[in-house]
């Protein structure tokens, strides 16, 4: 056990916090928008999924670095 494992764990936690906050905020805005304008729900859902995928991609970059750190140790 050395610092790389600790770094990987802390990094994974921080990444999940960031990704969760981002997707949570996105979903809350999308829900609000489709609540205000139910006829546009389909278009909002599509763009929400695209944005969620992009946010998710960013957090996966972080997680991959964490995996590399954990495997290196």
């Amino acid at each position: 056990m050395d610092l790389a494992h600790l770094a990987a764990g802390i990094g994974a936690g921080l990444t999940v916090i960031g990704g969760g906050l981002g997707i949570g905020k996105l979903a809350s805005s999308a829900m609000e928008a489709s609540g205000r304008q139910p006829e546009a729900a389909g278009a909002i859902r599509t763009s929400m999924i695209i944005a969620a995928a992009l946010i998710e991609g960013m957090s996966f970059f972080g997680l991959v670095i964490c995996i590399l750190l954990a495997l290196k140790a």
């Binding site: 998710e56 996966f60 997680l63």
Partner: peptide
């Protein structure tokens, strides 16, 4: 690159 990582990681 992001496309590959996303599918793989998921």
């Amino acid at each position: 690159f992001a496309l590959a990582i996303r599918l793989f990681a998921n």
